[in-house]
Design a protein around this nucleic acid. Structure first.
Lengths: 173, 173
DNA sequence: TCTGAATAGTACACAATTCAACTATATCTA
DNA sequence: TAGATATAGTTGAATTGTGTACTATTCAGA
């Protein structure tokens, strides 16, 4: 889809070489932390690029899609833009804009909260649910292919380590 | 620094709850992959926000800083914008703009490559090196605090798993 | 060696995101 | 209960990043 993809390694060897090259240039202590940061960044960039690619002509991108996931997965309960921005890691400002888009696409409905007049309750529309029914399997398949290089145990280990880091980071903030 | 920080968990419990909440809303198969994606995204967002915060009033952000790291770590060899964009994961377009900024700040020098007349050789200026001498320890300290929740063995494991994923992803692309 | 394909760098328009500020409402506390 | 403080949502300006297209140069193969 992109004419100038960010990550364009052609082969296993090329990718390894690139990583090694980056590491060579980061001497001294703290090297491993820096390496981990680079890996995490590249991973996220790839995941985002890949998802955006798959979403293609749906009019969605990875951010609006992740907002829809949250609504899709909790159809019974009301969700507010602020919660959404917390869950997705986007700013509230950006979430407002994303909700505008999603509303214009007819994928979500905004209604004033009956209990807190500052709030807006968000919900998937029928059309929104249908779109997600179609898109979710596609996206899962795409990321699944790559994640399947890890065994079940490795995924569990990775999840544990990443959670540990996220919690440490957030505790620090 | 930011008035509206993306990640604003107040406590360990709150963060755990938030993660659990996200996971609750992602039923079905592929759940773990989605969980991993969310963790990676949040981690990268936190790292970027944290670094940007530390960079503060230096006039740099996490992207221009990572470009400078590459130049700082290879002072002897010439580096081109394209290499830089590969290493940092930014588009070439963006790297051009970043180099413009860095040049205006007097942190880097652009000289035409003597061997390939399409290329531009980039190098840190003395001022650029001085700035990095000052900033690098700060940034390393900041990220170190959080990464230190992991033992040496855990970091090695994490690095191994992340590398495996990056390579798998890039191979697929 | 000539020609077509690939690469490096860039400019410009456009898209996405953030920052700062504001209104309205709710909550907390003296 | 009054006043201060915090939260929810939004807007407009500014920043940051991308898509497309272009020139110049190099490279690879007929």
């Amino acid at each position: 889809m992109n004419s100038d993809p960010i990550i364009a390694a052609r082969s296993f060897e090329e990718a390894e070489e690139r990583i090694a090259r980056v590491f060579q240039r980061l001497p001294g202590d703290g090297q491993q932390n820096t390496a981990l940061i680079h890996l995490i960044k590249h991973l996220w960039k790839w995941l985002a690029e890949s998802a955006n690619d798959e979403l293609g002509d749906s009019g969605l991108n990875v951010v609006s899609f992740s907002a829809l996931i949250m609504l899709y997965s909790a159809p019974e309960s009301a969700v507010n833009p602020s919660e959404l921005s917390q869950c997705t890691g986007e700013t509230r400002t950006n979430m407002t804009r994303i909700c505008n888009e999603l509303e214009q696409l007819g994928l979500i409905c905004r209604t004033p909260s009956p209990t807190d007049r500052r709030r807006v309750d968000l919900a998937l529309s029928d059309k929104g649910a249908a779109v997600m029914d179609e898109l979710l399997p596609k996206l899962r398949a795409r990321s699944g292919v790559a994640f399947d290089v890890l065994s079940r145990e490795e995924k569990d280990t990775l999840e544990g380590l990443l959670k540990k880091l996220v919690l440490a980071f957030e505790q620090q903030a």
